Simulated assay, not measured.
Amino acid sequence: MKVTLAAHGGQAAAVLLRLPPRVLDTDTLPEDAAAELARLVAAAVPAAEGGGPGRARDAMSYTITVEEGGRPTVLTQSDASMSPAFAALLGWLEEHFARR
């Protein structure tokens, strides 16, 4: 599974435009970390369906793209309307990328 995280908007919008999305391939993770990521993705997909990115002044919006078996699933939410499951996945990804 390949997971891509992109952030948009907020007060750092000008800086974020220049940054490429961050990409994680579960083949590079330890087995327990890959299993935890798969669990978080499975919980976030139904929670993100039907919920748009939301609107709020200076809010960040996040796009998490999950590619598995050649099929992409795109999840988009914002600080203004983020499900707990999406927030857990986002937090896990941000923590992982901070350690790299």
Results as ranks from 00 to 15, higher is better:
residue 4 T to N: 06
residue 44 A to I: 02
residue 79 D to Q: 10
residue 84 P to R: 15
residue 24 L to D: 01
residue 91 G to R: 04
residue 48 A to P: 00
residue 17 L to N: 15
residue 18 R to G: 15
residue 11 Q to F: 14
residue 77 Q to V: 06
residue 76 T to Y: 00
residue 73 T to R: 02
residue 49 E to D: 12
residue 86 F to A: 07
residue 88 A to P: 06
residue 59 A to M: 09
residue 26 T to R: 13
residue 56 A to V: 05
residue 46 P to M: 03
residue 35 A to H: 09
residue 3 V to R: 02
residue 61 S to E: 09
residue 71 R to S: 05
residue 54 G to E: 05
residue 91 G to H: 04
residue 41 V to A: 06
residue 76 T to F: 01
residue 48 A to E: 09
residue 38 A to M: 07
residue 46 P to A: 03
residue 3 V to L: 10
residue 73 T to D: 04
residue 53 P to Q: 11
residue 24 L to P: 01
residue 19 L to Y: 10
residue 46 P to C: 05
residue 64 I to G: 00
residue 50 G to F: 11
residue 21 P to I: 05
residue 80 A to I: 01
residue 29 L to G: 03
residue 77 Q to R: 01
residue 78 S to K: 00
residue 65 T to M: 00
residue 20 P to V: 07
residue 11 Q to K: 13
residue 44 A to Y: 05
residue 40 L to V: 07
residue 27 D to K: 13
residue 90 L to K: 11
residue 79 D to I: 00
residue 45 V to K: 03
residue 25 D to W: 05
residue 8 H to E: 10
residue 74 V to A: 00
residue 39 R to W: 10
residue 81 S to N: 14
residue 6 A to F: 06
residue 44 A to S: 09
residue 80 A to T: 02
residue 21 P to D: 11
residue 1 M to W: 05
residue 45 V to L: 07
residue 13 A to D: 13
residue 95 E to K: 09
residue 21 P to V: 08
residue 90 L to T: 04
residue 17 L to Y: 13
residue 15 V to F: 13
residue 25 D to C: 08
